[in-house]
Design a protein around this nucleic acid. Sequence first.
DNA 1: ACCATCATGTTATAAAATCACCCATGGCAA
DNA 2: TTGCCATGGGTGATTTTATAACATGATGGT
Lengths: 144, 144
Amino acid sequence: MQAAVDLARQQGVRLTPVRLRTLEILLETHQAMGAYEVLERLAAEGFGSQPPVAYRALDFLVQHGLAHRVQRLNAFAACLTPGHDHAPAFLICRSCNKVAEADVPAIRDAVGQAAGDSGFSVERMTVEVLGLCDRCAAGAEVRP
Amino acid sequence: MQAAVDLARQQGVRLTPVRLRTLEILLETHQAMGAYEVLERLAAEGFGSQPPVAYRALDFLVQHGLAHRVQRLNAFAACLTPGHDHAPAFLICRSCNKVAEADVPAIRDAVGQAAGDSGFSVERMTVEVLGLCDRCAAGAEVRP
DNA sequence: ACCATCATGTTATAAAATCACCCATGGCAA
DNA sequence: TTGCCATGGGTGATTTTATAACATGATGGT
């Protein structure tokens, strides 16, 4: 969290109240949150209540590497290692909906090579894995 | 294409007219198509004109490995190597919007191992790479 | 022929995302 | 100071994507 603030200052970008609060909200849970869910929270705290408010803040965070978008869930999650310039893989538990961020450098290499062979130049990469986390695999396969 | 028909017969599933036509539509282009775009085509050919018609056909194709969903584009693309039980990576050109399917077994291994280490059991995996295809990188970086 | 099952069609609605416009702030140059 | 303009935020409306719920029709086994 503090890392994020530092990083923003360092990059010379403005981590305004809405943006900061949005990041905090994401950090409060390890589950990915939908934009409208975030919006609800923001609105309850006196910020704007229309979709663009949430989308703009979230887009900003993603743009600056402070959060990630989880395509499969149409949701967002705070980045756990900001500033690390990573191509993380997301481990999405289909039972409890928690999202873990795994850094798997080998993926980047493998994809880079496969793409390079066909002349494709890689810019961004998303890896999302659906399955069961250890807790859910072990016991109650239910959503909390 | 013929492969798909064979595969369906072999699996004992019904490749009905809508489903077959949907697959053909996807195969006619190498670009991923949105559900509503497919729906338009289907409707113009006398099939139903409401969203569920397209979504059901597309879901069926995805379910049976004859097509893939490209999350990043909210779109669908025909599978080029059906029956191959693969976890393909998609190379999405942000200029011409074409989608190439690359089989990169190393990814599966790397992710499987990283996930296994944390007790996560993998069920499905999607890898999507955004960038420029060779043609677009070379010349006109414009959408057709 | 009968029934269970699967497939299709339709209406309606939900969920996710974007557009277009306006106003406030805050830095900066004249 | 004043005027300007770039950036960010607020709001209403709309577009795009996806599903729910229900009725009808086809298919295949017995």
